[in-house]
Nucleic acid binder design. Structure first.
Lengths: 203, 203
DNA sequence: TCTTCATGTTGTCACTGACAACATCGCGAT
DNA sequence: ATCGCGATGTTGTCAGTGACAACATGAAGA
């Protein structure tokens, strides 16, 4: 045996991501992963306590990347806090469409219940980013009467739900990404005005 | 052996629902179910081809009950189509809170991908009910420019996402049901006006 | 009564996650 | 230089699980 894979941990995470993208989370097996990488069936155990632990690590990575994507999208959106929060919503959907494996793993109930510390930290960082943007939009007049954290949680859930619909519903299957993103934009606009100006015109 | 359980099929579904409510879908095992009911490990196979088949049957039942709940909620809401659609949104959340096992199983990705004919029929009936209500609201002026099916799908996803947040987020854990339903109402109001009158005042 | 079919039983297989005991590699202290 | 030790990987094994096949039982109708 050649032994010595070197970076088995990241190789496992990579392979897991592609397996999940192709066949879904249920099809993921530690032993199959080990076989795919030409390594013994117990080798994954050195890096991940169990299957849930691997999924948690993958989900943490997904949250970190989503957070990073949101930050660049926010700065690209300019100064208007309402437009920024709207852009965040769109980016949640765009990122999900770009990275279906991360979407699946972060949204999977089995993983959501899991309380790995590094996963919880990544989740919290993601929530903090969204909450800060929601607070800025609220500060300039968007939904001033609602509880901030509730606004954050429910708008995030709505955006992720929309992403799920766009990925799973046959109505949208096979449509080009650009079209899906356009639809995503309209959906986000239902909840968050596209700009401060639009918000002021509403009422 | 006493043999002859009589109605093993519905006993399996019942027991499965309580197991799911208590320990989650992942904890569900056909063999454990058989043990719980004092029946041999292969007996469930007579009624459900495999684990996914049992989950599909449970999900179909969930969709049927949700649809029934929506219909009674709609008639109770009176004649205003906007108020009716708003009430439907609230009832989606209320039903989910009342029946967490059905919620979990209908929303679980593993089950959502499944294409059991009776499950698909139940899903379609649910979708038809929501779409009819959305169409009525649209006919009196709600979001007239949006695609009807998209409106239906995304508003359903938003309501279900809100239900998920209310059930899973620690922020809402342990709060009395009445309070959760009040929050649910505010969330629905973010997307669907509470009445035709409110809709007309918006713009 | 006899047959037939639905329902349940026993037996078995491959696969999986999990654990324990052992092997090897590389690196840092002596 | 080497010694020792911790990190990483290996082989071996166990119980739980889903799935299937072959058989048993009981009820209902020809």
């Amino acid at each position: 045996m050649t032994y010595h894979h070197g970076n088995l941990r990241s190789a496992l995470l990579d392979r897991a991501a592609t397996v999940i993208a192709e066949e879904g989370i249920e099809a993921l097996s530690l032993r199959a992963l080990a076989r795919d990488l030409g390594v013994s069936h117990a080798a994954p155990g050195r890096h991940f306590k169990d299957r849930a632990d691997l999924l948690a690590a993958l989900a943490a990575e997904g949250h970190r990347r989503m957070t990073a994507a949101l930050n660049t999208a926010a700065t690209a959106a300019g100064d208007d806090p309402v437009a920024r929060y709207n852009a965040l919503g769109r980016e949640v959907i765009a990122f999900s469409l770009r990275h279906p494996a991360y979407f699946q793993v972060t949204q999977h109930p089995e993983v959501e219940r899991h309380s790995d510390p590094s996963l919880m930290a990544a989740r919290q960082a993601f929530g903090d980013t969204v909450r800060a943007a929601a607070a800025a939009a609220q500060a300039v007049g968007w939904r001033p009467d609602e509880d901030l954290e509730a606004l954050q949680l429910f708008s995030t859930a709505a955006a992720l739900g929309a992403a799920s619909v766009l990925m799973r519903q046959s109505k949208f299957a096979g449509r080009p990404t650009a079209e899906l993103l356009a639809i995503a934009g309209r959906v986000i606009d239902l909840v968050i005005p596209p700009s401060l100006e639009a918000l002021r015109q509403e009422s």
